[in-house]
Design a protein around this nucleic acid. Structure first.
Lengths: 343, 343
DNA sequence: TTGTAAGCGTTATCAG
DNA sequence: CTGATAACGCTTACAA
């Protein structure tokens, strides 16, 4: 080893005692004379001894390392999740090894293997968009290998999951708009094949119903790409005809909302006076645009924290691995800012 | 081990050969009969044998793992760097273990030790804001341990670094403001112990000078925390007195710029007509705020990629560790948006 | 062509 | 109270 780190052997040799004595002294095992203990500890200190974690892993079949499989690090949401994961892991003496799949299934399988090769004690997974077959995960789960899924839930029975309550978030957002007195609320929806999109739409519909408003399919527009231009154009189109001309917009995420806001402004309309807007996800920019955008905050780092806590419980045997599934659903928080406050 | 992964021993036992034969057969060593080779490989395949990376690390004193020490994962810039790192590491069969310091020196030292305990083959470091004493790094460098610093350069001789040309980025930004006809350009600067802050300030000063403008220390404000409130307050204060009242602001990053923009708007002033603003780092939100923020783009993932390439070269012995320093400086790009276009 | 044995750093078991 | 020894999974001289 380049670093020439001192080992137990070095200490033992220098002190003319056996390796086991040193090992025991270092860990305050019973049955070591205070004198030996002292000598050993002093020398260890002096030599700056630190136990070799790799040797420990091999010996104990435990690496104190957890693997994180994530689609893309640069997604703001995922980066907050990672931050939460890292925080809890660190606090409990665990390391985090990180791999991104770039939304590719092949890559996902590959990094999964690498992590197993490295004897990770457990896995935190948000699978790729390409993943429709979950065998590579279920195989492990059948062997009681600890895995917690977050954000994206696999089609496997009895997994342990951490997600956000998308339905509730949408419901609150739309209810809020209704309470502000907006009468014709449009939904700029996400792609229908994603569960989160469907749940947000469901929340929207239910909130309208509970507010005594009609559900009009013409007021639900799909913005699958989720970029500004798409929603800019979609919004302009809405305002062309009187029958679809809305006085409020609930967008499936903040970028879509931002596009809508630009369109509204370009028509000379005022936000929130003429049109109210609420987004989703609390992107960093949303508090900085004009007017500041009301949005539904997803607790990214809490997702990471919670998922890690669950995983560590499984690893430490405080929780059955695959006994029965568990869904932890974290609450969203509606952040009411200027863009939706009419009153 | 929970997974009950097959080992070389299992294969050897079942085939009635020795461990070494299996090991050699698996790696196509010369001097193994084709027949044995075939038998071994088939059984390995059948048992789904995968080498235990931990055992390999111990045996070879090489872990194929690199450690990344970073202030905060949620910084957009850092997340792009991580992404670049992960990409190159993966491509070369290396794992990435990730720790964030949250800008705390204590934490930095702690994670550094953890990584060394885990026998990482090398380190990619962007140190914390609190770090002014670099002993914990120089000690390692003296032992020829491979480290590449990125973004924030330590005050150590002969290190290998990857940065962005912060001076140039700042220079371009301020020159641009001057060319737009702004006359009194304030700099909201970062903490002075970071080289990047100092370089951005130098670029600012030089650009002013080259534009024939006075350097006024009262027009350089420190915003060390880098959050919105800080710069909001600082900006308000600037506008209180006529002698510090600016007509343009160059902020050391986009969040600081965003805070300044809010302050400017709150005073009823117009951007870019009354006050021009340029930020730094091209955060995701900067194109979406109103008006869109001009900013200096740093090639985050290229920094990560380059730093990782250099580190792997050092690890593989293709490059001297500490022979002599090397500075790779990547170019920034000025993105001119609405917030600074007066003409 | 294959086997034996030592060793990477640590800990657990069994003796003394 | 302390020491020998084996073992975790793998590689690699050295022997056969």
């Amino acid at each position: 080893m380049k670093l020439g780190q001192a080992t137990i052997k070095d200490i033992a040799r220098e002190l003319n005692v056996s390796n086991s004595t040193v090992s025991r002294a270092l860990k305050d095992y019973p049955g070591i004379s205070d004198e030996t203990k002292k000598k050993v500890k002093e020398l260890a200190e002096k030599l700056n001894y630190r136990p070799n974690a790799v040797a420990l892993s091999l010996r104990k079949s435990k690496s104190f390392t957890i693997g994180v499989i994530i689609p893309e690090v640069v997604h703001f949401f995922f980066s907050t999740v990672i931050s939460g994961i890292e925080e809890i892991a660190f606090k409990n003496g665990y390391n985090v090894i990180l791999c991104q799949t770039n939304e590719k299934l092949e890559r996902e399988k590959s990094v999964l293997n690498t992590m197993l090769d490295n004897q990770v004690d457990g896995l935190l997974v948000s699978y790729s968009k390409e993943t429709t077959d979950f065998d590579h995960f279920s195989k492990l789960l059948n062997l009681e290998f600890p895995i917690v899924f977050f954000d994206r839930l696999p089609e496997i029975d009895n997994t342990i999951n951490v997600t956000v309550n998308d339905y509730q978030g949408a419901y609150q957002a739309v209810k809020h708009l209704a309470e502000q007195g907006y009468k014709k609320i449009v939904h700029l929806a996400g792609p229908n094949n994603l569960a989160i999109s469907r749940k947000r739409k469901d929340g929207y519909i239910e909130a309208l119903r509970d507010s005594g408003m009609e559900i009009d399919e013409n007021l639900i527009l799909s913005c699958p790409n989720g970029d500004e231009k798409e929603s800019f154009d979609a919004t302009l189109k809405l305002f062309e005809k009187p029958e679809t001309r809305p006085d409020a917009i609930f967008a499936h995420h903040d970028i879509v909302a931002a596009g809508a806001m630009m369109a509204i402004k370009s028509l000379g309309l005022k936000i929130p006076e003429d049109v109210g807007v609420v987004g989703y996800s609390n992107w960093q920019f949303s508090s900085m645009i004009d007017p500041p955008l009301s949005t539904v905050a997803q607790p990214g780092s809490r997702i990471g924290e919670k998922a890690t806590e669950l995983l560590l419980q499984m690893i430490d045997g405080k929780r059955e691995a695959s006994a029965k599934g568990e869904n932890v659903v974290l609450d969203t928080e509606l952040l009411v800012r200027k863009s939706s406050v009419k009153i």
